[in-house]
Amino acid sequence: MIPVNTSIVSGVALSEIDGEMKMLVMKRTKGNFWCHVAGSIEAQETGWQAIVREFSEETQIEVTHLYNAQFLEQFYEAYYNVIELIPVFVAVCPPNQTIEINHEHSEYKWCTLDEAKHLAPFPNQHAVYDHVWSYFVEKPINDLYRVKLKPSN
């Protein structure tokens, strides 16, 4: 039997950079590969609360427009013998969003879809980026995907 882990969330940031919509990818120091924001859900957090915190910790983005991407990243992690099911979120940022990466990343880039897919090594990342681009860049964003952010207590 292979256990399923559902304790991780991920998110793609979008911002209009110098007039062109782009997505944020960062190079992880652990593993030395390009990826989007991701992290573990902490005690008493919902998935959307965890991704808002992760955006803040990893990039200093203060999320004000968050969407459920309606997509699950899924893959088998051989080292841990676990299937990861990871809900994906989208943070739509103001134009020319500034980024300040933390110690988990060595560099970042705002990328077009093709650039992000060229940098990201995993097929699941390509599927996430294709989906996000299709439903959040090429089409008007469906308001049903919006996550209503509540003030934290």
Rank of each mutant, 00 (worst) to 15 (best):
residue 120 A to E: 14
residue 118 H to Y: 13
residue 39 G to L: 03
residue 107 E to T: 11
residue 153 N to T: 06
residue 73 E to R: 14
residue 61 I to Y: 10
residue 95 P to H: 00
residue 38 A to K: 14
residue 126 H to T: 07
residue 146 R to C: 05
residue 125 Q to C: 10
residue 14 L to W: 02
residue 49 Q to Y: 01
residue 104 E to H: 14
residue 91 A to R: 00
residue 115 E to F: 09
residue 61 I to P: 04
residue 18 D to H: 08
residue 120 A to G: 12
residue 1 M to V: 11
residue 53 R to N: 04
residue 35 C to R: 12
residue 114 D to T: 09
residue 28 R to F: 07
residue 136 F to L: 10
residue 132 V to I: 08
residue 131 H to A: 02
residue 125 Q to P: 05
residue 140 P to C: 05
residue 80 Y to R: 12
residue 15 S to F: 01
residue 113 L to W: 03
residue 132 V to M: 05
residue 51 I to Q: 05
residue 152 S to Y: 01
residue 79 Y to Q: 11
residue 128 V to Y: 02
residue 136 F to H: 11
residue 20 E to H: 08
residue 125 Q to I: 11
residue 49 Q to R: 03
residue 7 S to F: 10
residue 119 L to N: 06
residue 147 V to T: 01
residue 134 S to V: 05
residue 62 E to T: 15
residue 138 E to G: 05
residue 14 L to I: 09
residue 93 C to S: 07
residue 136 F to K: 07
residue 11 G to N: 01
residue 78 A to G: 10
residue 3 P to G: 06
residue 129 Y to N: 06
residue 99 I to Y: 01
residue 118 H to L: 15
residue 47 G to M: 00
residue 121 P to N: 03
residue 1 M to K: 10
residue 77 E to C: 02
residue 100 E to M: 12
residue 101 I to Q: 08
residue 100 E to T: 15
residue 54 E to R: 13
residue 128 V to G: 02
residue 82 V to A: 11
residue 99 I to C: 07
residue 126 H to C: 10
residue 125 Q to L: 14
residue 136 F to R: 07
residue 23 M to I: 05
residue 143 D to L: 15
residue 37 V to D: 00
residue 42 E to L: 14
residue 123 P to Q: 09
residue 79 Y to M: 13
residue 22 K to W: 00
residue 136 F to W: 09
residue 131 H to V: 04
residue 123 P to R: 06
residue 129 Y to T: 08
residue 106 S to V: 13
residue 145 Y to R: 15
residue 144 L to V: 15
residue 42 E to F: 09
residue 17 I to F: 01
residue 35 C to P: 02
residue 40 S to T: 14
residue 80 Y to G: 13
residue 46 T to R: 03
residue 131 H to I: 08
residue 109 K to C: 06
residue 67 Y to D: 02
residue 5 N to Y: 10
residue 91 A to W: 00
residue 140 P to H: 09
residue 95 P to I: 05
residue 39 G to C: 02
residue 70 Q to N: 14
